[in-house]
Design a protein around this nucleic acid. Structure first.
Length: 208
DNA sequence: TGCGTGATATTCT
DNA sequence: GAATATCACGCAG
C-alpha cells in the first residue's frame, strides 16, 4: 500500500484488525477541519480494543445500543463518547461491519493549528500537554459526540492523512501492555494493546 | 492524592 | 418510569 503523503486515508487503510490499525495509525496525521481551518497532530499513542469494554466485569460480547452503534459500522467510522462528566474519548473503528473493535487515540503531537489548540486548552502548562491524553486531544481538536459516527474515509471535517516518515529516525514504535500489567500472565480478556512512539514528549505517560 | 462530572446501561419498583 | 452504579480522565491541592 503506497500512498502519497498528505493523502486522506481511504476505506482500505482502516479496514484491518485493531492491532494492525493501532500500529498503522501511530505516526499518521489526525486532521480536524473547522470552518476551513486545519487543526492536526501526529498520533503518538494508540490503544487497540478487542471488543467492547463498557463494564469491566461482564464480558460485553455483542451488545448493541444507540451509543455503541458506530462501533459496529464500517472501518474508519469515528466513535466518540463522553465520560467522567467532562471528557470525550475518540476511537477509530476497525475490523468488519458488525464487529465491535476499535482503536482509542490516546495522544497526539500537535502539527497544525497550535493557536486553536491553545485557546481550547487554556491552562495547558506546555504545548506537549495539549494533546497528551484521550480527553485532552479531543478537547484540543474540538471533537465531541457530534462527530461520533462520522465516516472518516469520506468526511472532510475529521479524517486521517498519510504522513511522511512519521516515526522519524529516533522514534521507535513500541508496544506496551496496559498500564501496570507488564510481562507474564496477561489476562486474555484484557488484551488491550497500547502503542507508543518511544521518545515522543507528547505521550500521556512516558514509556520507560 | 482525591474528587467532580454527566451520559449511559442496568436494575429496581 | 425512576434510581443507582459505573466509567477507557484531568486537574486542583
Amino acid at each position: 500500500m503506497s500512498a502519497a503523503v498528505g493523502e486522506q486515508w481511504g476505506r482500505s487503510d482502516y479496514a484491518t484488525d485493531p492491532v494492525t490499525l493501532a500500529k498503522r495509525l501511530s505516526g499518521a496525521l489526525l486532521v480536524r477541519v473547522e470552518r476551513g481551518r486545519r487543526v492536526s497532530g501526529i498520533n503518538v499513542e494508540t490503544e487497540a480494543y478487542l471488543g467492547v469494554r463498557v463494564r469491566a466485569a461482564h464480558s460485553f460480547g455483542g451488545r448493541r445500543t444507540a451509543r455503541t452503534e458506530p462501533m459496529y459500522g464500517p472501518a474508519g467510522t469515528a466513535y466518540v463518547y463522553f465520560t467522567y462528566g467532562m471528557h470525550h474519548c475518540m476511537n477509530v473503528v476497525a475490523g468488519e461491519v458488525d464487529e465491535p473493535v476499535a482503536v482509542l487515540l490516546r495522544a497526539l503531537a500537535p502539527e497544525e493549528g497550535l493557536g486553536a489548540m491553545r485557546r481550547r486548552r487554556e491552562g495547558a502548562a506546555r504545548d506537549t500537554l495539549l494533546c497528551a491524553g484521550p480527553g485532552r486531544l479531543c478537547r484540543a481538536l474540538g471533537i465531541d459526540r457530534a462527530l461520533s459516527g462520522v465516516d472518516m474515509a469520506r468526511s472532510s471535517a475529521l479524517f486521517v492523512e498519510h504522513a511522511r516518515d512519521p516515526a522519524g529516525p529516533t522514534l521507535r514504535l513500541v508496544r506496551t501492555a496496559r498500564i501496570g500489567v507488564e510481562g507474564a500472565g496477561q489476562p486474555a480478556a484484557s488484551r488491550l494493546l497500547r502503542w507508543c512512539l518511544r521518545g515522543s514528549p507528547h505521550l500521556s505517560r512516558p514509556v520507560r
